[in-house]
């Protein structure tokens, strides 16, 4: 079975298979490569490299050749889940990481298009998060003073009810 990996956001495919005695084969393209990770030693074929790996769930942060990489294992299910989430246009997400300066609305509040609902600070610049349309606030996801990452949900508006 081949797995999907993202190396710094670009997609790559590779498989891993046992080769007996605790050894593994990496299946990449049409090739099979004997690989092993022994502490800080990465063996690939006949080559040995010093490597540092820190794993966070499905993400491996790898320091190799003097550079740091983020390699993410993307499970097949996660690919669909992500596509579904992106359809939710009622949620305003953070364009970049930052912190919340002020929250001007609470759940249940009526807002009109262009109304400033939240003020965030990113890269030392304040940005107003405005209502994209008239509606009702369903959820405020982050409180004043809190920080958030890029892509984090900030405010969700209640879906428009069909008349």
């Amino acid at each position: 079975m081949r797995h999907l990996f993202l190396i710094d956001e670009a997609e790559h495919e590779a498989g891993l298979a046992p080769a007996g005695d605790g050894l593994h084969h990496l299946l990449v393209g049409a090739d099979t490569l004997a690989v092993a990770l022994e502490g800080t030693q990465l063996v690939t074929g006949g080559r040995r490299d010093r490597v540092h790996v820190a794993v966070e769930g499905n993400v491996a942060h790898i320091h190799l050749d003097g550079r740091a990489f983020r390699v993410e294992f993307r499970e097949a299910m996660a690919r669909f889940a992500k596509a579904g989430a992106e359809g939710g246009a009622d949620t305003l997400v953070a364009p970049m990481p930052g912190s919340v300066v002020a929250v001007n609305v609470e759940a249940g509040a009526n807002v009109t298009a262009g109304q400033i609902m939240m003020v965030i600070e990113s890269m030392k610049l304040e940005t107003a998060i405005k209502a994209p349309r008239d509606g009702i606030v369903a959820t405020t996801h982050v409180a004043a003073g809190k920080t958030f990452n890029k892509g984090a949900a900030l405010i969700t508006l209640a879906p428009i009810e069909e008349a």
Binding site: A17, V28, V35, T44, R47, V53, A60
Partner: peptide, 20 residues
């Protein structure tokens, strides 16, 4: 480098290693 990164990732990410 691409292959070495994939090897390091595949060997360290739990679900990939467990599946293998």
């Amino acid at each position: 480098l691409r292959r070495r990164l994939l090897a390091a990732a595949a060997l360290s990410i739990r679900p990939v290693r467990d599946a293998a």
